[in-house]
Design a binder for these strands. Sequence first.
DNA 1: GGATAAAGGTCAATATAGTTTACCTAACGA
DNA 2: TCGTTAGGTAAACTATATTGACCTTTATCC
Lengths: 146, 146
Amino acid sequence: MVDIIKNEDLMEAIEQFYFAYRSFTAGPDRVLQERSLGRVHHRILYFVGRNPHISVNALLSVLAVSKQALNGPLRVLVDQGLVNTEMSTEDRRIKQLTLSPEGRKLERQLTRIQMQQLDAVFSRAGRKPMQCWLDIMREIPRVGPL
Amino acid sequence: MVDIIKNEDLMEAIEQFYFAYRSFTAGPDRVLQERSLGRVHHRILYFVGRNPHISVNALLSVLAVSKQALNGPLRVLVDQGLVNTEMSTEDRRIKQLTLSPEGRKLERQLTRIQMQQLDAVFSRAGRKPMQCWLDIMREIPRVGPL
DNA sequence: GGATAAAGGTCAATATAGTTTACCTAACGA
DNA sequence: TCGTTAGGTAAACTATATTGACCTTTATCC
């Protein structure tokens, strides 16, 4: 059985992964900078948007940051009225996070940039290559750390 | 003409891109931490390894950081004997960077972690999906910023 | 009921990583 | 010689993240 994957392919993959991710985050970063927000704010908006009523602890786990690193940015978003909090009815220790309409608006603005970028590439490549890409991306954390 | 790419696909792509990249960088980060080095050192080692005799300015461009942000980490690597410098013979202002044997060793150690991770996924997926993945990654910076 | 644990919040100290601004030398080239 | 380029440094600043310690409120377990 021969190796179907060449070292040169793997080297190029490493490089393109770096360049692609850098480009992928650059768009939202620019919008965020105008509001003096950073990537953590973006991630909060994204994951709260995708998981309404998520608890602070759950958010902590998915973002893999310390409580203190989350708390500052989260408070900013709550203070600016982009994220709403409500007590859980079953367990009143738990704070449930949701996006406000304005928070949803910003989240969509940021997400749209990345969606457009990916859509431009996926549309040209076709549906099947997109599926391959997505399958591979899903597997990467499963064979590595985190 | 219908949209072949669904919004839900794009949303998942955004998310998997984030998780995959985080996992992808976590392995080398751990090794680097033991030596008190960071990602900039890694990028320097990687690009100098791939482009021997690269100039400081060229490295600056490819990494897209300020001269000051590069200078510290680069000096550390030179002081530790991981990167060698030599004057260009045609233009003695230009400093050419290459990896020392020990620098090459560390670069290979770091790169191997990421190569193994990608190889595990690519081998299972097959050569054609890998090509799709790589083609898409190559295109992402071409339709976006940077 | 009382101990313990869990969810969340906050402060302080620290580390790192990056920025901009500014100024320096050495070498090239017209 | 003069302007430009390659490279090096320093200061002040910003941000992002860490760990450790300590606090309240609420739930749960015995």
